[in-house]
Structures are given as structure tokens and as C-alpha cells.
């Protein structure tokens, strides 16, 4: 009985963090997808500078830790350059978006490269321009292949959003920490409930991943 009472007590408090977690997730996912396509396509560009420059972005953001990137944007850049990048909500969205955008750009690039060469040749034989080949033939097939990986990384992004509690945002984990610090003996239960919250949020994304896998199995040349 004591436990159930505690759950009834804690859960609504954690739920106050839902809007931050969900809004950061949605915004950073959109931003990451955008970066993924821009960077993924740029890395296939014929222009050496564009290719190298995007390569640098991808390697730096993949190769360093998300939490340090977050602190850079939040603490270091304002001090060094005297510019404020926006509210901490925006900084969270930018950091998570740039970080996962770098990973996802590799998915975009890999999928485009893995569309069978015969598809480009058939499109050339039908006298399509290189832009038409990309738009009508390669890209639609590549997107199907990207779907499972995109939803997979989105689940990771959901978990990544918990880092914004470290720059003072009131997300689910932030409220969990608050409750625990006022009631230390409740720590196991609090963090169990935090896990349950994240898991429930992840469920639709897990379902989307499955869906993406079935879609991507159809309609792609092998």
C-alpha cells in the first residue's frame, strides 16, 4: 500500500516534465532529420570543398560527446564570443539536432550509395538528367531504406533529451532528481518510474521502427 501511494504521489510530479521532454524530442528530431539530408547529400556533392567541410562537421559531432557539446553551447560559446544562442530549450534542441544529424547523415549517404547501380543506368538510358535520376529514382528508394535507422536513432534521441536536465531544463529526469533529493529513501522507486516514463514514450517509436522495417523491405531493388 505504501508503494502504491508513493507511485500515485510521484507520477504526477514526473509528468510535469513530459512537455519539455516531448517538445525537445520533436524539435530536435526535425532539426536532426533536416541536418541529415543536407549533410548526407553534401557529402555526395561533386564539389570538394562542400564534401570536405561536411565531412568535418560529421566527424567532429560524431566523434565528441553530446554532453560536452551541450556544455559548449550553453557555457563556453557565450563566454568566448559574448553571444547568447537563445533559451536553454533552443540550445538543447540545437545540440541534440546537430549531434544526431551527424549520425543520420551517414545513414542518408549510405542509403543513397546502396541503391543498385543498375537503377542509375536505367534512368540514364531513359535520358533523365542527373537531378531527375536523384529525385525520381534514387531518392525514393533510398528513403525507404533509411526508415528503420531513422526511427532507431529517434529512440536514441528520446533518451538523449534527458541530458537537457543538466542545463537547467525541467524535463522528466529533472523532476525525478528533485523528488529524490527531498526524499532520499524513495530513490529506487523514483528512478524506476523515470525509466517507465521513458519506456512508454519510446513505445510508439519502437512500433514505428517495426513499421519502417516492413516498408523498407518492399520496393527496393536488390
Amino acid at each position: 500500500m505504501v508503494t502504491i501511494n508513493a507511485i500515485i504521489d510521484i507520477a504526477p510530479q514526473l509528468a510535469r516534465g513530459l512537455s519539455v521532454t516531448v517538445s525537445v524530442l520533436l524539435a530536435s528530431a526535425i532539426f536532426a532529420y533536416l541536418m541529415a539530408f543536407i549533410a548526407g547529400l553534401s557529402r555526395l556533392s561533386k564539389n570538394t570543398f562542400i564534401r570536405k567541410f561536411t565531412g568535418l562537421y560529421v566527424e567532429v559531432f560524431r566523434g565528441t560527446s553530446l554532453i560536452v557539446q551541450l556544455f559548449w553551447l550553453y557555457y563556453a560559446i557565450p563566454m568566448l564570443f559574448g553571444i547568447q544562442l537563445g533559451s536553454n530549450w533552443w540550445i538543447g534542441v540545437i545540440a541534440i539536432g546537430l549531434n544526431y544529424g551527424a549520425y543520420l547523415s551517414e545513414v542518408v549517404r549510405g542509403s543513397i550509395l546502396s541503391v543498385a547501380k543498375g537503377q542509375t543506368e536505367a534512368a540514364t538510358a531513359l535520358n533523365m538528367s542527373s537531378f531527375q535520376r536523384m529525385r525520381l529514382i534514387i531518392f525514393p528508394q533510398a528513403v525507404r531504406m533509411m526508415l528503420p535507422e531513422f526511427s532507431n536513432y529517434t529512440i536514441q534521441m528520446l533518451k538523449g533529451t534527458s541530458l537537457v536536465s543538466l542545463i537547467g531544463m525541467t524535463d522528466i529526469l529533472y523532476y525525478g532528481d528533485i523528488i529524490r533529493s527531498t526524499n532520499l529513501s524513495q530513490a529506487p522507486l523514483v528512478y524506476l518510474l523515470v525509466l517507465v516514463f521513458y519506456f512508454i514514450l519510446a513505445l510508439p517509436l519502437i512500433w514505428l521502427t517495426r513499421k519502417g522495417e516492413t516498408i523498407s523491405k518492399k520496393g527496393v531493388a536488390s
Partner: peptide, 26 residues
């Protein structure tokens, strides 16, 4: 025009769309 050993049909389009895309767009 060319026909290939491995057909190279566009798998994301129906048969009819396969035949219509190029005349319409090209």
C-alpha cells in the same frame, strides 16, 4: 533506348508508372 540483362525496373513504381515516368518528365 536500352534494355538490360538484369531488367533494372524501378521497384518503387507500378508497371504502368515505370513506363510513364520518362516520357512525362524527360
Amino acid at each position: 533506348g536500352m534494355v538490360f540483362q538484369h531488367f533494372n525496373l524501378f521497384p518503387h513504381m507500378t508497371i504502368l508508372e515505370n513506363c510513364m515516368t520518362a516520357p512525362i518528365h524527360v
